[in-house]
Nucleic acid binder design. Structure first.
Length: 462
DNA sequence: GGAACTCGCCAC
DNA sequence: AAACGTGGCGAGTTCC
């Protein structure tokens, strides 16, 4: 068989890293402006809130029981102590254990225990996370009002990037309150505005480039098709769903986060079943009774709907998802499945994996790692190339706008308002023209979505 | 008193 | 048979 010469070499990979390091170093030197005064004020404010919560906890019977065991060593931040208190002294059955076999005290576990004081502990954890991991890091790492996060290209097994001091790649966004508090601290330069350019579903597009699964390609190319909605129909057994209707969109979201993505990462129906039954608020033991769970599009409760379709318990639901999974890989995405099996076989034969971008993954890998590394790495390399080219053009054309960071599939720009349209156009051109010209293996058009923040306003989503 | 580990939790 | 990929980081704990 003749080699289809679309794959890059190790030398190409080296060049990408070399150019990438330089481009990222320039972004590091620019830095991100922070609102120091806000950070200090907010830290004080959070400290007062945390202290109030701590006092409230210390005023309870629960705390006195804790103190009875640990005396002067009692510490409400100690999960070790909390675990002993709940699972040894109070003899509560742990819902799950940590890797070392202790009863877990994470958010999910605490939420299942009917002790009101645990809500206060969780609230304290959330506030101290924001204060200690983010605001405190910003003020500690800042110099003249700018932080300069490092972007590393030499630390990650998949040849993705990482970021540290401070980590720019894990600033809260999902939780609205944490997002507001942390991102309020990050500002554009005076007269500028922040903008983000996100690749849309980048990893899935790259996965499709690797496996060339016609069904997956169709889902990505055809705007009228919707993979997550189709999976929601199958999982929740509806003939028709419309993503524009809120409750339908909720089921779509559940299918996406509770089935499709985990499956792509190598998860299996057993975990999907736990996640999804929890999502629709149905119990994981016993027979389901009428009137349980969320209200569904057809006006029935989830349990009624499922019972009508022959699913009468959590075990039935798990069995259903087992069939959905089987259909997912052996019918719907059978070419993707075949590619995954082939990846594993190739690795077993050769002892390493080669990415389309020229990188070699070697060392011992588990099955899921084998299937994920090339996709994750190559996806990031699309971003890195775009970042390098933007940086070059920015310097050539002497933009006042500055690249300031990158979050795996998203580029963050501190943009001058007069240039912002041009920045976006330039990025689109790179992605639509240069990238597929450089890498012929990109057989599905990539796209970006752009978010613009207001002039002189922080990085807060309305 | 510091290194290494555990746990939890933030992002993609 | 088993079963979710990649990171960084802070606080608590344990080890030396």
């Amino acid at each position: 068989m003749t080699m289809n010469k679309i794959e890059a070499t190790t030398a190409d990979a080296y060049k990408l890293i070399h150019d990438g390091v330089l481009a990222l170093a320039r972004a590091e030197r620019q830095g991100i402006r922070i609102d120091l005064e806000y950070c200090e004020k907010k830290k004080h404010h959070l400290t007062r809130q945390i202290n109030r919560l701590q006092k409230k906890i210390q005023d309870t019977k629960f705390y006195r029981r804790w103190e009875h065991i640990y005396g002067a060593k009692t510490n409400v931040y100690s999960n070790h102590q909390l675990s002993n208190l709940l699972y040894r002294h109070m003899k509560i059955e742990p819902m799950k254990t940590t890797v070392t076999g202790r009863g877990s005290t994470d958010e999910e576990a605490l939420n299942r225990i009917d002790v009101p004081e645990l809500k206060l502990i969780l609230q304290m954890r959330k506030l101290s996370k924001v204060r200690d991991t983010y605001l405190d890091a910003f003020t500690r790492e800042q110099h003249d009002g700018y932080i300069h996060p490092s972007f590393n290209l030499h630390t990650v097994r998949t040849f993705r990037s990482s970021s540290d001091r401070p980590n720019f790649q894990n600033i809260p966004i999902r939780d609205k309150e944490s997002m507001r508090i942390c991102r309020r601290a990050l500002l554009p330069r005076p007269g500028h505005q922040l903008m983000e350019m996100d690749f849309s579903a980048l990893e899935v597009h790259i996965a499709a480039c690797y496996c060339k699964d016609p069904v997956l390609i169709h889902y990505l190319k055809d705007k009228n098709s919707d993979m997550h909605l189709d999976m929601a129909k199958q999982i929740f057994m509806f003939d028709e769903l419309d993503r524009k209707i809120p409750i339908h969109a909720v089921l779509r979201q559940a299918a996406k986060n509770g089935f499709v993505f985990p499956q792509f990462y190598g998860d299996y129906y057993g975990n999907n079943s736990l996640y999804l039954s929890d999502w629709v608020k149905l119990p994981q033991e016993g027979r389901w009774k009428k009137g349980m769970g969320l209200l569904l599009p057809d006006g029935d409760y989830t349990s009624d709907h499922f019972i009508n379709h022959g699913i009468k318990s959590f075990d039935d639901f798990t069995e259903h998802l087992k069939q959905v999974e089987d259909d997912f890989w052996n019918r719907r995405f059978k070419a993707y499945h075949k590619w995954r099996l082939n990846q594993v076989n190739q690795y077993r034969k050769k002892g390493y994996l080669k990415m389309f971008t020229g990188f070699t993954c070697s060392g011992t890998m588990r099955r899921n790692e084998i299937m994920n590394y090339p996709i994750q790495g190559s996806a990031f390399h699309c971003l890195l190339f775009t970042f390098i080219r933007l940086d070059e053009i920015m310097r050539e054309e002497k933009w006042d706008s500055k690249l300031i960071g990158q979050i795996h599939d998203c580029i963050v720009v501190d943009a001058h308002p007069d240039e912002i349209d041009h920045v976006e156009e330039t990025a689109r051109k790179i992605i639509k023209e240069e990238l597929p010209a450089k890498w012929k293996w990109i057989i599905i058009p990539l796209d970006i979505s752009v978010d613009r923040y207001e002039v002189d306003s922080p990085w807060v989503i309305k």
